[in-house]
Design a protein around this nucleic acid. Structure first.
Lengths: 345, 345
DNA sequence: TTGTATGCGTTATCAG
DNA sequence: CTGATAACGCATACAA
């Protein structure tokens, strides 16, 4: 079965290629009768309709937008935060009849950067910070938006590219101050994997982490001024990792009085680890997360609320409308105090 | 900023376009020195690397595969079954460095069928039955796989196309027989929306549904031979819909003694509706689902277990390897009896 | 209303 | 090792 093209049809029918093309895309450009004849003939010849790729090349648009994750895709589907973001993002895209392609570009995987190069898309949204992948996309001249601000350049200003974020630094400070006011003097911070050069499950001190490495952590450190802080990158941003880190954080003589995780999934995992050990969050230990997932309310987790849906929706809108004026958006966040934090005895 | 092409670079450098192309794709085809010069010049001129679409047109491959859903994408991300399937599917794709594009083609939305036509992909997997969207894809000559067998043609054999399914009819029969043996004589069946022509939330009787409309329902009807059965299509395959249908199923004088939902999400939603009304599943009413989600075990839901991960994995493998021999796969399923079903008093 | 020429950006082929 | 030419399949601009 060899491929039939518009040329073949045109030849058989004795009309020009253009007429065939128009029969499919611009019915008003030819008589109904001719159009009818073309379509019938095309069907009979086994023509399958205009080729998607050729059309894209010719028109210069793909009507497709990529979403980049810095973790494996299977993670993207299991993380409640990305799922919520994706739902909002996809709703906007769907309404505009644009499609979505998913790209996984693990931080540090130079090889995977090729995926950015090879993506046939009109724009790229990153469920991540201003990663190399985003920079690469901009080099390609593609519109980009990123939605997490885990790091910023030395001057404290993102290098370039559009974004929809919250002020992660400020949020970190608020959480830090909250704990400090409650009297906590020994605190663990659990980072995910978005951490430059650190080894998973190892313990780091204030001096070990460069201030701009991770904005939430930076804010936390400043909000926790004068407090004894240990930072543990746990390797991946997941419930399981949060649960597993219990062995490091909870099973020690000098157990911290409070633990902050950079996301609710992690915090909820750790919460489970607490229960397994007979520790009650909010009484035996204080726990804080980031994101305010739906399940966090039920769990009584103190956290930073952020408008996930708005992030997803706005990211999509920025990509779809390159003329939209405000392209660097900082959304509001809010510290939600629930039962998982308490004053130290 | 106008687009720089390989031609421009070739011209400036006084070499042929081919040499430029080779500098990027086939380092062994030219001297290291020349290659170096080309790349440097290219960078200086703001060349962003080979154009993805042009390359796809030329090579005839996109290295991208589509996943088609028959519900809105936001649903796809919130349904545990699709998420699990996607995770497995994407893992295989990721390993082969192929990317995934998501397509939503609601059943009956003729307009949305265009998305199939316009998708620049090498193959299409459907998290659905042998829908029109799948047929369209086959007409295009694309490899397809579908993963749900909610209907089959009159002869009882799927029309064409590859698939990875379970024997939904047999599973339905098993569930029906299970309930009949327990003595249930008045049963409600809750279908999702994959139901031809029926009106959501209306009640149908045996005769109203064509046997081949929905294989699970067909099986259930046969397994429940002689039992008083009412069928309610609830509009969408979601927890919320299952919860909402409580008003129809539970708040009536002649309440059924058992309810079967075509998926666990629906059943779990209804389970919640039961609790709200003070009804205990497994005592006041029997509940059965399909899928065996992780949360179903905890909820004590009797259900049909099916190998979601295998479905996703195999679908991806079929698409990636057109030479693979067995292309119509029926995986095993199993009735898991838990506490939500009990003999009638 | 219909047709003609041309280019979108790349890469295969084959010749030098 | 390097280069000229020809597609890939379609749609835009313009002419008839």
């Amino acid at each position: 079965m060899v491929k039939v093209t518009q040329q073949d049809i045109a030849k058989v029918l004795g009309v020009s290629v253009m007429t065939v093309s128009n029969a499919f895309n611009r019915p008003d450009q030819l008589s109904a009768g001719l159009r009818q004849r073309v379509l019938e003939r095309a069907a009979k010849m086994g023509y399958t309709g205009p080729d998607a790729v050729a059309r894209q090349l010719r028109s210069g648009r793909t009507n497709t937008f990529a979403v980049v994750f810095e973790e494996r895709l299977s993670y993207a589907f299991s993380d409640p935060f990305s799922v919520a973001w994706l739902a909002a993002f996809s709703e906007v895209m769907e309404r505009k009849r644009a499609s979505i392609t998913l790209l996984s570009v693990p931080a540090g995987d130079i090889d995977a950067l090729a995926a950015i190069q090879d993506a046939a898309v009109d724009g790229i949204a990153g469920l991540c910070g201003d990663q190399p992948a985003m920079a690469r996309a901009r080099e390609r001249g593609l519109p980009t938006v990123y939605c997490t601000m885990e790091a910023r350049s030395a001057e404290g200003v993102p290098s370039s590219g559009d974004y929809v974020v919250i002020d992660d630094y400020a949020a970190g400070v608020e959480v830090g101050q909250h704990l400090r006011r409650l009297g906590h003097r020994r605190v663990f911070l659990l980072a995910g994997e978005a951490f430059a050069g650190q080894v998973p499950m190892k313990e780091y001190r204030r001096g070990d982490v460069h201030p701009s490495d991770h904005l939430r952590i930076s804010g936390l450190l400043d909000g926790l001024a004068g407090v004894d802080v240990t930072i543990v990158p746990i390797g991946t941003n997941s419930w399981a990792a949060g649960q597993a880190v219990g062995t490091i954080v909870l099973d020690r003589r000098d157990r911290p009085t409070a633990v902050v995780a950079v996301s609710d999934v992690i915090a909820l995992g750790l919460m489970d680890a607490c229960r397994q050990r007979g520790l009650t969050p909010g009484r035996d230990i204080s726990l804080v997360g980031f994101d305010d997932l739906p399940e966090s309310a039920a769990a009584g987790l103190t956290t930073i609320h952020q408008p996930v849906q708005d992030k997803g929706r706005l990211a999509a809108e920025l990509l779809l409308d390159p003329e939209r004026p405000d392209r660097r958006i900082v959304l509001p966040h809010e510290l939600i105090v629930r039962s998982s934090t308490h004053p130290v005895a």
